[in-house]
Design a protein around this nucleic acid. Sequence first.
DNA 1: CATTTTTCCGAGTGCTCAGTAGGTAAATTG
DNA 2: CAATTTACCTACTGAGCACTCGGAAAAATG
Lengths: 209, 209
Amino acid sequence: MSENPPAPVPERPRRGRGRPPATDRRRQIEDAALEEFAEHGFRNSSLAAVAQRVGLSQQGLLHHFPNKEALLVAVLARRDAVDTADFGGLRDIDRLTGLAERNTERPGVVRLHALLTAEAVTDDHPAGPFFRARYEELRTRVAEAVRESEHEEAPAPQPTPEETAALLVAAMDGLQLQWLHDPEAVDMPALLGLLTRVLYAHRGGAEQG
Amino acid sequence: MSENPPAPVPERPRRGRGRPPATDRRRQIEDAALEEFAEHGFRNSSLAAVAQRVGLSQQGLLHHFPNKEALLVAVLARRDAVDTADFGGLRDIDRLTGLAERNTERPGVVRLHALLTAEAVTDDHPAGPFFRARYEELRTRVAEAVRESEHEEAPAPQPTPEETAALLVAAMDGLQLQWLHDPEAVDMPALLGLLTRVLYAHRGGAEQG
DNA sequence: CATTTTTCCGAGTGCTCAGTAGGTAAATTG
DNA sequence: CAATTTACCTACTGAGCACTCGGAAAAATG
């Protein structure tokens, strides 16, 4: 079911003598592309704009990536790797709140995520499978984390781990949208923490705020 | 603070004798535009594509709307009017669940909302102010609804109406994204209903399912 | 220095797009 | 029927886009 995104290019080896490939450039370009895509979306970003950010011509950029789609895939793959690392073991469900907190400081990544998630819903978008798989995996992992943290008390009509996971993930994305539109209006980490506690901790009335 | 979107064209009056303006066409075009924008987003939709849906040439369409942006504003204004009506008095907070249920049957509108909400985050997007105002109003109204439904019992560490509102709205949008990516994966109305109950009804253990 | 490989660019192609200009046909009124 | 106003189209402009082609400079090896 869950088709993973392709590996992020397995370090192409030196082939003969000539000039060595500049691996830095690829990363520079990916970083620039992330910023650009985050600001204008994928379809509405131009290769030329990305190229300009790294002091390249559009054609110079196309030397490193065969086409625009390949660039997007590379960006997503790298972003996913970083986020997975950020996510860590996720033994504790409260890590989600920590992630929200960190995201507060990098609107670019948040924007990229929000924009592409929505954009990728349309037909035949190159990032479509990526995000479908990502959501599936996220729900699964969060559900697992919930299950592991579940040893607490659970006396009342309790949502299942799967339901909890779907709702937490949803709240995360939804809060990001509100926050992007008006950073002052919502406190992402606080709200997510609150939701986490309320959702699966019908504890008898302790631990508030 | 809350700047409302401009009124949806105040029914331009007959001016002299000539041919009467075809108000039907405007609505036809708006409907077509909604579908088109919902599928491809605003910036990535073409006027020609919208025009084709109603059997017009691109220029024929531009006779009715001075430019693309005006068309978007018209679509949003109409959509907002309809949604506000749907939303009704919202005396009961459970109406939100009902709205989620209805949305299940009109992916087009959901797509438009999700796509434009994200797209409008970018700089100088014509729909930016619209969505910022909309979120603000939504949070306020939902918070009010929560407050009115609050008479129940509330013994435990309870989220405030404002927090509840922000989280409900967030979950709604986040669930929509997940649902758009994989309709089988999440049950929007069920999850939203569950969240509603959990969020402000730490009732002693009654009323489940 | 000759060779090879990588890096990058100038020029160009073919496409799509929003918006303009100018004109014709249709519907309504007097 | 004449005047008027709307509806709509053909033709066009100018811009931006992804992507190709062919070549030149740079950096390494021998």
